[in-house]
């Protein structure tokens, strides 16, 4: 069993969902974001999505965009994120790490070189936001050779037939997007989310993690009941973007992650 499978399996044995936390690497600067990830792991995150900032984040809402813009101004690069990931994965051999970015940043590094490097430093997979099923070959091949998971997305727009095709080829897990739109916290998730996740899970050979729009412990709990994993990004980043001392903001972010982790259990 590989690390990602183990994480989902061990969560399943205690009847809870895995908590996946998206971090904007380099926000507010590289050193702080390394600490923020440390905090998230200490607070109960099972898998970390290492968000590499891109100048043109067309699938992202205001929170991640704002964090990315600051990170880029502070000089965040893919190389820097890889160096950080190597340290993190050494310190946390049981935590899952997924590199999360847009294709241009990865293409620029070289896809073969990137996959080999990720493998070497102990990152488990890649999620390329703007790489749909039809275009996946150029990254899927080097991922396969390096033994990395290429995590696909499905969305409410995806027909069940298409979802089955996408999930049929997935390894690691599938990321199901809760809402039609970009990332960002929503006041309420659409009511059909639960039913949708149930039918995806029925058809998926790998665990289904659900994300987009999750605001707090309550909405995380609702999703944890019906998904194998819960992904939260913007809500945590919003805590970090709030005004005030960095120390306070970090503590608030880490408290939120602790609340989210406490909401993963499916026991009453």
């Amino acid at each position: 069993m590989d690390k990602i499978q183990k994480i989902f399996a061990s969560c399943a044995t205690v009847d809870r969902a895995a908590l996946v936390i998206f971090c904007s690497c380099g926000y507010p600067d590289m050193d702080s974001s390394e600490q923020i990830i440390e905090d998230a792991i200490a607070a109960g995150a099972d898998i970390i999505e290492l968000g590499v900032p891109f100048s043109d984040p067309m699938a992202d809402g205001a929170a991640i965009r704002q964090a990315s813009e600051v990170a880029l101004r502070q000089g965040a690069t893919l190389k820097g994120v890889l160096a950080m990931a190597e340290r993190l994965s050494k310190r946390h051999p049981d935590t899952g790490f997924i590199l999360f970015s847009y294709m241009n940043v990865m293409l620029n590094y070289g896809l073969d070189a990137l996959c080999n490097e990720l493998r070497r430093i102990g990152v488990d997979g890649i999620l390329a936001v703007d790489l749909p099923f039809e275009e996946r070959a150029e990254l899927a091949d080097p991922c396969r050779s390096a033994g990395l998971h290429l995590i696909p997305l499905v969305s409410p727009m995806t027909s069940l037939e298409r979802a089955a095709m996408i999930m049929g080829e997935a390894t690691g897990f599938v990321y199901s997007v809760n809402i039609c739109g970009i990332t960002g916290v929503r006041e309420k998730l659409p009511p059909e989310v639960a039913e949708r996740l149930a039918s995806l899970k029925e058809r998926s050979p790998v665990p289904v993690a659900a994300g987009f729009g999750i605001a707090d412990g309550a909405s995380a709990k609702a999703i944890a009941r019906v998904a194998d994993g819960v992904v939260v990004g913007s809500a945590v980043i919003n805590k970090l973007l709030a005004p005030g001392e960095l120390e306070t903001r970090r503590r608030d972010a880490s408290e939120l992650v602790r609340t989210l982790a406490g909401s993963m259990s499916r026991h009453a």
Partner: peptide, 20 residues
């Protein structure tokens, strides 16, 4: 045909694929 040689294609988030 969705590409011109290696160029073009549909590098978008999955949400846009059914729309395209």
């Amino acid at each position: 045909k969705t590409h011109y040689g290696i160029y073009g294609g549909q590098y978008v988030a999955e949400t846009l694929m059914p729309i395209l």
